[in-house]
């Protein structure tokens, strides 16, 4: 990478970016360069989880990741989650469980859960899965419906 050039695959689409300053965060690349506003900006300090995306299939906090450090990676955001079978299952589980209210934390939850289930599938005990979701904050739901969605998404896996 030179001259701030960055190659990413974003939601399956090869993307080349120029003049990416070294301090730019992946969150800003996704939201402001690529216009994918489904990834939410909350605390910007890695505390709320609203900005979670997948990097090469693993959930990461895009506010803590320098864009240049993601050079060459495949990034999946909420806009592309349906093309991933696990992601679509998670998304559908959130919809049918009514696991959202204001919806601001929702993309982050969907991406985090998708990443966790992609890593270990059904073999992850539910308790561990929920423990790992603890880094995503929700102020509206009290998490009950989110737990229901997580359980349903996990049980629906092959």
């Amino acid at each position: 990478m030179s001259g701030g050039r960055l190659r990413l695959s974003v939601n399956g689409r090869p993307t080349e970016l120029a003049d990416v300053p070294p301090e730019e965060r992946l969150l800003d690349t996704v939201r402001w360069r690529l216009g994918l506003k489904g990834t939410k900006e909350g605390c910007r300090t890695g505390e709320c989880g609203a900005c979670t995306v997948l990097r090469d299939g693993h959930a990461v906090l895009s506010c803590l990741l320098l864009a240049r450090d993601a050079d060459g990676a495949a990034i999946t955001t909420i806009e592309g989650v349906r093309s991933d079978p696990v992601g679509e299952r998670v998304r559908a589980a959130f919809e049918s469980a009514g696991a959202l209210q204001c919806g601001y934390c929702t993309p982050g939850f969907v991406m985090a859960l998708t990443g966790l289930l992609r890593e270990a599938g059904r073999s992850t005990p539910l308790d561990e899965l929920l423990e790992d979701l603890g880094g995503n904050l929700c102020r509206c739901t009290g998490y009950s419906t989110i737990v229901r969605a997580a359980r349903a998404a996990r049980e629906g896996l092959p």
Partner: peptide, 19 residues
């Protein structure tokens, strides 16, 4: 239990003030 705003929010298409 599904909400009418579920689909748009889960598609990442709902535009908030921050967006």
């Amino acid at each position: 239990t599904a909400r009418p705003d579920g689909a748009v929010k889960l598609a990442g298409a709902a535009v908030y003030g921050e967006d």
